[in-house]
Design a protein around this nucleic acid. Structure first.
Length: 419
RNA sequence: GGAGAGGUGGCCGAGUAUGGCUUAAGGCGUACGCCUGCUAAGCGUAUGAGAUUAACGUCUCCGAGGGUUCAAAUCCCUCCCUCUCCGCCA
């Protein structure tokens, strides 16, 4: 959500941001309503002031034992007028609030301008791609029956994952390794609910835009979380923090549920695009002046993980058209997957500035006093499991179809080769 | 799912029986000042949020939403959440 003052005074910036992100922008309707609202508000407040005044007069007249019928009558008539004004005012305000949910966040000035991912700027490539003197296989062939699509299909449906044997084991130890890595970086581990309510989904920005991409439990009006970002960020919804509570640095594991409605094609093969995947997510809440530096630090942290896992990777600064609705700036991390011979997105690290904290009411009190400020929120995947699994399996394959584990995992588990 | 008790400013906590000097007491915390070799303590002052306005000011907010009333933190209805006990259950 954007500041109403910004919408009112910088409507051109809002309009430009929406165009660059490829989002609709109901700013003209909003501006009209804003005019109307302020005028209604003035009149309503004047009437309410009068009613308050009359109430006091009635009160003191009655105390003196005098009659107050004239005042009571006027107060009643004023009340009726107020009710009619309020009805109009409430409707106007409600419509404005509804529209405000549709304004996307404004991209940072250094975000490349462009309508889609072809405008993303690759800012770093750590490219020591493995080479094989045999034909490298994609992970689904290497996994074979350990990646049991027939079973997951019959249990849940297509594009759900069922892993067996060492494949299941690898995913579990990867999750543990990732979480321990964040632990050592001095973040607080959080175990979160995997379902979230409508308010939570609205504050992080999934609702209204992505509502149809989520699994929804109608009976309880709950959503299966599409990312750990939702419960982690909403941990501090509607709260006022002290300045020395900041920065808040938390992380947690969650499965991520996405309907992926309408996305079919070759990208859906294997572990690349599925309805439920596992992910470890980091969230930080910082003072506004620190969010840019924090974004860089989080990106470095994610890069370290990929280097430890010995995965070739590259970092893209997303262009405006590829930037998500709520983000102001985002780095995407992609790892090289040798069997498929392509880059797979495994992490997004984003700065949301005050966009989510406004929606969710996450503020802090500056140490020297003064007005409450909205925190800046950031999040980053650290990391998304299935594609990391795919890359580890494909990059570590041997001619005989076994998998060499990255050193860091081999040392941790005492197991060097899978399969 | 059933019964009971609760939800009031950053936090704690009065106020609800009897609607109207509540402009929400008091405390903690915080800020500033005073005082004391330093520190701690003590004393004094200030201190909720939001909307609107050039400003003064005005209005709104006591879990959420309705209702009654000239007037609602207070009375009525619906819902949500927390705690305790019971039921069910991994």
């Amino acid at each position: 959500m954007l500041d109403r003052a910004l919408l009112r005074n910088n409507s051109d910036r809002v309009r430009a941001a929406a165009v660059n992100k490829g989002e609709p922008c109901p700013i003209d309707e909003w501006l009209e309503l804003d005019e109307r609202r302020r005028s209604l508000l003035g009149e309503t407040e004047e009437l309410r002031r009068r009613r308050n005044e009359l109430s006091k007069e009635v009160s003191s007249l009655k105390k003196e034992g005098k009659e107050a019928d004239a005042r009571i009558l006027e107060s009643r008539e004023t009340g009726e007028k107020i009710a009619s004004f309020e009805k109009d005012l409430d409707a106007t305000d409600a419509r404005m609030s509804e529209l405000e949910l549709y304004f996307p966040n404004i991209p940072d000035p250094d975000v490349p301008l462009g309508s889609d991912e072809t405008f993303n700027r690759i800012i770093l490539t750590v490219e020591e791609k493995p080479s094989f003197d045999f034909k490298a296989l994609p992970h689904w062939e290497l996994l074979g029956e350990l990646f049991d699509q027939k079973a997951s299909g019959s249990i849940a449906g297509s594009n759900f994952i069922l892993l067996r044997g060492w494949a299941a084991w690898l995913q579990r130890i990867l999750i543990n390794w990732m979480m321990d890595f964040h632990h050592r970086a001095d973040m607080e581990e959080i175990w979160v609910p995997f379902l979230a309510n409508r308010e939570s989904m609205t504050s992080t920005g999934q609702i209204p835009k992505l509502e149809d991409d989520m699994y929804h439990i109608e009976k309880d009006d709950l959503f299966l979380v599409p990312t750990g970002e939702v419960p982690l960020t909403n941990l501090y919804r509607d709260s006022i923090l002290q300045e020395n509570d900041l920065p808040i640095r938390i992380f947690g594991y969650s499965p991520c549920f996405r309907r992926e409605a309408g996305s079919y094609g070759k990208d859906t093969r294997g572990l690349n695009r599925v309805h439920q995947f596992e992910k470890v997510e980091m969230v930080q809440m910082v003072k506004p002046e620190n969010s840019e530096a924090t974004l860089e630090k989080m990106a470095v942290h994610v890069g370290e993980m990929l280097e430890l896992l010995n995965l070739p990777y590259r970092i893209s600064l997303l262009a405006t058209g590829d930037l998500s609705f709520a983000a102001a700036k985002c780095y995407d991390f992609e790892v090289w997957s040798a069997g498929q011979e392509k880059w797979l997105e495994v992490s997004s690290v984003s700065n949301f500035r005050d966009f989510q904290s406004r929606r969710g009411g996450i503020r802090y009190r500056p140490a020297g006093g003064g007005k409450l400020q909205y925190v800046h929120t950031l999040n980053g995947s650290g990391l998304a499991l299935p594609r990391i699994m795919a890359a580890i399996i494909e990059n570590g394959q041997t001619e005989s179809g076994k998998i060499m584990l990255p050193k860091v995992l081999a040392e941790r588990t005492g197991i060097e080769i899978l399969g």
